[in-house]
Structure formats: structure tokens, C-alpha cells
């Protein structure tokens, strides 16, 4: 059916999308690479020229880098752990015969539609504020000393906020996958005498594996770039305690106006994202074939 004419036509129709995405992908990335090897500071315009690996040495050699890298991994890992386990359990619960399932779905998904700065500020001021936050009231009710969450446990606090936003997403996707599992299959297993635990391991989990992989993939893409939640709560602090790679690049490049070092950090972020992407694409690909 693909005549020469339709082929030319479909190329023309795809051209705008392919061209803009190609430009979007290549031009800024090449510029980031270029800047990362230059002495380029907006504060000190006299300093120019080729820098070699100096920017990379400066960024990676700084203790803040290792800390940001570790923070990034803890942030992504922690949120994934909470949302996957919590999401699976919540999806299994919502799949049970319960009253008001439709309304429940809507209530549970709501946090996902709250824009990141709002989510962060609601938690920061309404819940985690040591003076008038809900948690402070709760602690006082039990006669405990209220916790100054963002100073004492900055990274943990950010993880809680981000997990609150993404748990609904994981739940919704996993619930959708769960509901596509055929009823006959479950009933057959039940008839054959498989108990709840066996049914979970041999019927439900294999069916859910693909959906879980997809949730991990998509969430990782977004979680590597967590920014607004940090920006409006801790500002990356105290010190670098809640700075991830994304925020470190922003701090170095935009706040400190060091274009060269910021770009080197940006390149490192791209490399990390690519490692994760390759790893995850392979996992998804394997799952898709099976």
C-alpha cells in the first residue's frame, strides 16, 4: 500500500516533528558540551578560553558533587521503593469489592494533579512546620517535641513530598493493569485450589511485572529531575544536605553564574540519565518480548 507517493507524503508530514526534535536534542546538548570545556563565568568575563578538563575536575572534585550524587540516588530509590510497594498494595486493595470505587479512584489520584511547588509548600507550611504544622500538633498531642523536619531531616522530607505526589500515579497504573487481568484466569486458579498467596505469586505478580517496570521507567525519568520541590522547601540545604544533581547544576550555573562548571555538571547529569535509560529500556524491552 505504500506507494512512492504516499511515502514522500508521509515523510513531509513527519518532517516538522522530526526536525524540531532533532534540533532540540542536538543544539543545546552540543552547546553544553562546548561550554563544559570553556572558562566561562558571567561574574568574571575576563576569564575565557579553553579549560580542558578543569571544569569537570572542579565539579566532580568538589565534595558537594558526591553528596549530590548520593542524594539523587537516595531520592530516586526512596521514592521508587515507597511508591512501588505502596502503590501495589493500594492497587490490590482498590481492586477488592468495595463501595464507592469510582469516587475512591478520583480521591486517590488527586495529589498527582497538584503542581510541584504547591505540593511542596502545602507540606512545608501546613504539615511539617515545627510551629503550626499538623505534624507538630500531632507530636504535641502525644507529648513529644515537634520536629523541625526541613532542618533535621531535609532529604527525608523531600522524599515524603515527592512520594506523596507519585504514589497516586503508581497506584493508578498498577490498578489499571490489575483490572485487565481476566476474571476467568483468577477464578480458574481459585477453583484449582490456589490460595491467596499462591494466586498473588503465580498469577497476579507475573501479570503486573510489565506494568511495574513501566512505572519504574517513567518515574525514574521524572525523579532524576526533581527540582521545584527542593527549590521552594530547603533550597538544597542545609549545606548540600538536600541538593540533587539537577539542583547542583542550577546552583552552579544559574545562581553562581559559572557557565563552564554548570555545563560540566549538566553533561554529568546527561550521562547518568543515559545509563539509567539504557538499563531501563533493556528491562522494558525484555518485558515487552515475553
Amino acid at each position: 500500500m505504500a506507494t512512492a507517493q504516499t511515502r514522500t507524503l508521509s515523510r513531509i508530514m513527519m518532517a516538522p516533528a522530526v526536525i524540531v526534535l532533532l534540533i532540540w536534542m542536538i543544539v543545546p546538548l552540543v552547546m553544553t558540551l562546548w561550554f563544559s570545556f570553556q572558562n566561562y563565568s558571567l561574574i568574571n568575563p575576563m576569564m575565557t578560553g579553553f579549560a580542558g578538563w578543569a571544569n569537570y575536575v572542579y565539579v566532580i572534585g568538589d565534595p558537594s558533587f558526591i553528596q549530590s550524587l548520593v542524594n539523587t540516588l537516595i531520592l530516586v530509590g526512596g521514592v521508587l521503593l515507597i511508591t512501588i510497594i505502596g502503590g501495589t498494595m493500594l492497587a490490590l486493595l482498590l481492586d477488592q469489592p468495595i463501595w464507592g470505587q469510582g469516587v475512591l479512584r478520583i480521591i486517590v489520584i488527586s495529589p498527582f494533579f497538584v503542581m510541584p511547588p504547591v505540593a511542596a509548600l502545602i507540606w512545608k507550611n501546613g504539615f511539617m512546620h515545627p510551629g503550626y504544622g499538623m505534624l507538630a500538633h500531632l507530636w504535641e498531642f502525644f507529648g513529644l517535641q515537634p520536629i523541625d523536619w526541613f532542618n533535621q531531616y531535609p532529604l527525608f522530607s523531600v522524599i515524603v513530598i515527592v512520594a506523596w505526589q507519585w504514589l497516586p500515579f503508581a497506584t493508578l497504573i498498577l490498578l489499571t493493569a490489575l483490572q485487565s487481568l481476566s476474571e476467568e484466569q483468577r477464578e480458574a486458579a481459585e477453583m484449582d485450589g490456589a490460595n491467596a498467596i499462591n494466586r498473588f505469586y503465580y498469577i497476579i505478580m507475573p501479570h503486573m511485572a510489565r506494568a511495574i517496570t513501566i512505572v519504574i521507567l517513567i518515574q525514574t525519568i521524572f525523579l532524576l529531575g526533581i527540582f521545584a520541590e527542593i527549590r521552594v522547601t530547603t533550597g538544597g540545604g542545609p549545606g548540600y544536605a538536600s541538593t540533587n544533581i539537577a539542583f547542583l547544576v542550577f546552583r552552579t550555573g544559574i545562581l553562581s553564574n559559572d557557565i563552564g562548571a554548570g555545563s560540566a555538571g549538566g553533561v554529568v547529569a546527561v550521562v547518568i540519565a543515559n545509563i539509567v535509560a539504557i538499563f531501563l529500556m533493556r528491562a522494558v524491552g525484555k518485558n515487552l518480548d515475553a
Binding site: A2, I221, V249, F250, I254, G265, A269, A273, N274, A277
Partner: peptide, 29 residues
């Protein structure tokens, strides 16, 4: 009008979404 390369093009488009925003923040800025 899918061709042999359609799947690859789709995957490539998806991969552009994986590029972290901070990787291109500075040039865009």
C-alpha cells in the same frame, strides 16, 4: 503509512524525553 523505521523513530522520540532538563538548562538560558 508505517515503514521499517517507524518503530525506531518512535523510540528515538521517546528517548528525547529522557534527556534531563538540567543538561540543556544553561545553553537554553
Amino acid at each position: 503509512a508505517p515503514t521499517k523505521r517507524t518503530k525506531d523513530v518512535l523510540m528515538w522520540m521517546l528517548s528525547t524525553k529522557m534527556m534531563p532538563a538540567v543538561g540543556v538548562l544553561i545553553p537554553i538560558y
